[in-house]
Structures are given as structure tokens and as C-alpha cells.
């Protein structure tokens, strides 16, 4: 399912992924100062967050939150 997890153990709170996501899926949690998945419905599985995360803390699976009809 889409962006699946952000590992709080690995996340250093740098915030890069929040800026990398073009569709505002990820936010910083004010209390823990870690990145959290806030709006997974919008995730387009582009992997930018995963590629840009310096800690390898993010895992994105290729399936959409709302599965699209494929192949018409």
C-alpha cells in the first residue's frame, strides 16, 4: 500500500522528505520531531521521498492507496 512506513528509529527529523513530496503526503510530527505519513490517499508512488531520505527510513510500495483501474 503506497508509502508504507517511515521508520522512527532511523528517521533523524531532517525534514527532507516533507519537501520532496510533491503532493503533501508527509508531515513532521511536532512532538516526536519525526516524519509521519499524514495523507497517504494522495501518494503517487513516485519514490522521491524514499530516494531523497538520507537515512533510508522510508519504504514505498508500488501499489496505490486507491487502486486504479488498469488496462482499461
Amino acid at each position: 500500500m503506497t508509502i508504507e512506513r517511515i521508520d522512527p528509529e532511523l528517521c533523524n527529523g531532517c525534514g527532507i522528505c516533507v519537501n520532496s513530496c510533491p503532493v503533501d503526503v508527509i508531515r513532521m510530527d511536532k512532538e516526536s520531531q519525526k516524519a509521519v505519513i499524514k495523507y497517504p490517499e494522495e501518494c503517487m508512488c513516485c519514490d522521491y521521498c524514499e530516494l531523497d531520505c538520507p537515512q533510508d527510513a522510508i519504504y514505498v510500495s508500488p501499489e496505490r492507496y486507491v487502486p486504479h483501474m488498469v488496462a482499461w
Binding site: C46, D47, P62, E63
Partner: peptide, 11 residues
């Protein structure tokens, strides 16, 4: 562009 199970251009 779309492919399943690789649904996007993937960067």
C-alpha cells in the same frame, strides 16, 4: 507510461 506492478515513471 503506467505499468503494473510498477505503476509510475518511478523517477
Amino acid at each position: 507510461y503506467g505499468m503494473n506492478p510498477y505503476p509510475a515513471w518511478r523517477g
